[in-house]
Write a protein that binds this DNA or RNA. Structure first.
Lengths: 286, 286
DNA sequence: TGGCATAAGAAACATGAATTTCATCTAGAC
DNA sequence: GTCTAGATGAAATTCATGTTTCTTATGCCA
């Protein structure tokens, strides 16, 4: 278990408690346990309410897990996490640099991520979020590598918004779906390089329909980008053979989270509904 | 690249604010400032009430210091301390930071990317690459968010290797595809949290078939991960509602590029064939 | 000296966190 | 079918945190 070796020893008692109970935890409590495992040494900085929210369960469930794990209350658990954590051992354990090609790759990707996000204006981000929030329907579209990003974005958005569609539908032509695009709809388009020729036509068709377009592209997309309401230019050149998508992925994650935030209670309701169905379907066993 | 060497600087924005005001701080507020400087990266785990008590001054004085340092309230300060705990060394090297929630998001994602890739041993990476290179067939599998990553990985690999398959096939059950899994095959599995229950079964079935498994997962995947030949544990916790996948995405990009490199002329030939077909189909117009 | 500005803590107040209670649902046993 | 145990979230409740207000003390200046 290589990764565990790198975790600070300070959280081992809590982690052991979680793992000892994990198999027998009811679904809701297991969700919080997952969150606790991910937070690792940082959990003391978060309230039980936040952790519960992150896990998509109630505060009451959080309290029950805390009790089940053997702590008298959350403050007890937090106290243990704190007293075990003096300083920043994670930082100290890592005296070593990553060498070679992986190190160069990391260096490149950190720079791509940073430059992309630093090139985003808060105004553009807010406009994109507002646009997507007010959308009656959201259409997420991307081809080839952009399709993986579109799939990801759609997966996030559909958790918090009721009508989010992914294009292209496998094996189908686009005209049928695009024919119902109308004012009030929003298209989130991912259009990175090596795009099919019809990308620009889709963009123009969307605009002509009255729908708004939020566009993530790379700098090679020329003037046609002006058809979109909001455009984000991401750096995608890789350090190697393949293009690098950490920038767009991070930006999508951010925008979708901001959409959820702006939706407020509506997003929470949608999330809850989805979680209830997940539970009913037994979707997450471990 | 000594990112971790710079990690003690993770509270620099707060520390700088304190030092900028220090000379002009009234005595009581200076006592709390001292405590803040002492706590360093741990301060987010403590309440303002506790910090004030530790400094021997009133809560009101703590609130005043927080305001004097430019934070809107203690929660604002704590939020920054939490985000700064996974700070952005590159931004600091450049003497600039992106402000607000986007800046905090960037800081978080840079840290997640860095921690994930730094947790990868060159030996594991090489073994994963060798495993995939020698695969007669490559099966890439992931569910939900992991499916977007699986799609991405498959898209990269299929450019350089002739038989790369994506699972699950939409609308189909897995057993038919998995029944042909055999020794000599390799399964690249993406298994991040909120996995369907059958993930472990698939992993075991793959092993039982004689195929090898290269697994990317998060720390919550327990002992079943031992069934895989190589395991990469990625940090996925997000700075917000949604999980963060910049780490896995970057790692996949790296591994696939290394596969291409290791395949050498074979990869070049495959690429050329694909490009010729793209040209014949008129796939890229602009 | 008086006036003013600032610092500080106590207390009041507002808010949010966490626990408890209650109602409902589900699954399993009989 | 009924009954029971357990899980869960909403709502009520409790409690702690953090901010604001008020009062008092101190230091400086005219």
């Amino acid at each position: 278990m290589k990764f565990m070796f790198l975790m600070p020893a300070m959280i081992q008692p809590l982690e052991q408690a979680i793992r000892a109970h994990y198999e027998s935890l009811p679904a809701g409590e297991r969700k919080i346990a997952d969150v606790l495992l991910e937070m690792g040494g940082d959990l003391a900085a978060y309230s039980a309410t936040e952790l519960a929210g992150r896990a998509g369960v109630s505060k009451a469930t959080a309290t029950r897990l805390v009790r089940r794990l053997g702590f008298s209350d959350y403050q007890d658990l937090r106290q243990q996490a704190r007293s075990a954590g003096t300083g920043s051992p994670l930082a100290e354990l890592r005296g070593e640099a990553v060498a070679g090609s992986l190190g160069r790759h990391l260096e490149h990707d950190v720079a791509a991520l940073t430059l992309t996000l630093e090139g985003v204006s808060a105004l553009d981000a807010r406009r994109a979020v507002e646009t997507m929030v007010r959308a009656k329907r959201l259409w997420v579209i991307g081809f080839r590598n952009s399709h993986a990003l579109a799939l990801y974005a759609r997966e996030l958005l559909v958790q918090v918004k009721p009508d989010v569609r992914l294009l292209p539908v496998p094996g189908q032509t686009l005209a049928e779906d695009l024919s119902s695009l109308q004012a009030g709809d929003v298209m989130l388009m991912l259009a990175f390089r090596r795009r099919p020729p019809m990308t620009g036509k889709i963009l123009r068709a969307a605009k002509a329909s009255g729908a708004e377009v939020v566009l993530l592209a790379d700098p090679s997309l020329g003037d046609v980008a002006e058809e979109a309401s909001v455009v984000f230019r991401c750096l995608c050149r890789g350090a190697n053979l393949f293009d690098c998508y950490v920038g767009p992925m991070s930006l999508l994650n951010y925008l979708c989270a901001e959409v959820a935030l702006a939706l407020g209670d509506d997003a929470q309701r949608q999330l809850r509904r989805g979680e209830q169905l997940h539970d009913a379907f037994g979707d997450f066993g471990f």
